[in-house]
Design a protein around this nucleic acid. Sequence first.
RNA 1: GCGCCCGUAGCUCAGCGGACAGAGCAAGUGCCUUCUAAGCACUCGGUCGGUGGUUCAAGUCCACCCGGGCGCACCA
Length: 552
Amino acid sequence: MAILADIQQKARDSLAAAAAAALPDVPLPGVGVQRPREEAHGDLASNLAMAMAASARRPPRQVAEAIVAQLPAAAEAAGLPLHRAEVAGPGFINLFLRPGWLLPVLAEVTAAQGAYARSEAGGGRRVLVEFVSANPTGPLNVVNCRAAAFGDALVRCLNAAGWRAESEYYVNDAGGQFRRLGESLRARAIELRGGELALPEGGYPGEYLIPLAEAFLAAHPVDAPVQAYARFAVERILAQQKESLARFGVVFDHFTHESAIRADGGPERVVAALAAAGHTFERDGAVWLRSTAFGDNDDRVLVKRDGEFTYRVPDIAYHAGKLGRGYDVLIDVLGQDHHGDVASVRAGLAGLGLPVERLEVLLNQLVRLVRGGETVRMSKRGGNFISMDEFLDEVGTDAARFFFLMRTIDTHMDFDIDLATRQASENPVYYVQYAHARICSLLRQAAEAGLVAPPPAALAPDALRHPAEAALMLAMAELPEEVRAAAESRAPHRMTTYARVLAERFHNFYVQCRVIGEAAPVAASRLLLADAARATLAETLGLLGVSAPERM
RNA sequence: GCGCCCGUAGCUCAGCGGACAGAGCAAGUGCCUUCUAAGCACUCGGUCGGUGGUUCAAGUCCACCCGGGCGCACCA
């Protein structure tokens, strides 16, 4: 068990036992133990006394004093290395632990061999995270890039926290937009053959279709059916999207095609089942889902007057299929412009009697690029927008990932290209990577000097007592819990915050505590600490999908 | 009009119901003959949009209001 979780459990046990001894007649509430922000408030703090004050009919501080009086014996019994306890503020019980209580973290990091962040908090629950799922009608853009950074890091965090997470990309390769893509490509082909460019209504004017049209004509006649054009375009564009993603370090476990869902008859079964359950009605020649019965604002059309399904029928079939694949949780990361679709998909699933509560929807908010203090216009009209590839050419994978993951997914963000590309200390991604490179350099030089890190078990109990050393170990001790929280709350951005704190603690240690040249036991124990910090930092960056360079 | 998201330092953003609200940037000041100065130390900067409510305790939860973004198709 991770050292911090272990200590916190022992603290809860101690407090509970002390409270039971001090106030045997008062029912015991859940014991809260937290890490206080202020160092002066001890290593751990509990609100137990304040929670018990009301039922004890005594002031919180009095309750706290009574508990504290019983605490030494209780701590002894629970194996908590308690130094002293004090009552503070409105009735907090602050616990100060014996110096050295953090030393076991070094053994843990060393023994974990790169899997120190790992916990079993997720209990092996299966979760499918769907993200990006951009329409295969053009190159990926900056918002897709944000979704990719988020979804991929979330999957990594979930897996580290003991979930069984997989990634999925839904390919919208059917329906009206698919047809218009084919028509657009055919229009480009006709143009290449000297004809007028006649793009369809709602078609795709982007110039990226021109080389695709050339490629198409190399193998097909210009009068090929629209379906062939569309199929060809989707395959090529999807391949390009996969390339962009691979370059970004994102490889999906699953691709599901809408065309496959249609070919399998999913939409027909959805409509039939919803009708059989009495959740549909006919109006104006269309078949409607009575989605207002499931909390939607309006009823929605399932089958149009012309007999075609609306996009939401395959959507419902797709989500029903995902549930049928046995996941405990489905996470959809959607562009916020699609949030209006969520209610009808939920309604459809509920109408089918499926466990709709397993579906969690996260909305990916917009990204505004800022360069030189000015907003970079990203108009999708006319087909000119900044593609993910162009963006990565300029910013680079590491900075892009780190910057996207510094923000929560549900906040609109300004992406400062100048800051992200600056190779200097004010750039947070370099700040963190630099810490890693600095440690590696230190380790290299230590090796040259013949300095060897001792096995953790060989550390003296009074080793690493410097405040900077303790602060660094404490940060390291927090990693497993931080990853658990990031996974649980679907908030991988917590890991960038954590990475910055960890890097800061190392830089601090580095400046204050020399390694090479110190007396043998000090140098050796610091070398061990530095190496463990390196491993922790590397693992953290790994969860973010950011590289951990050995030299900079 | 309805729905979703967001209003925290000059700017961009963190902040799990807890004790004096944080970081980076920007502005200013120190520190390199010693393991990477892509670093460290310090100064400046806030009625957490507003009003009520719940709570021993609210930036955090609830309601309403104001401001900004986005969406409200028999398009996807």
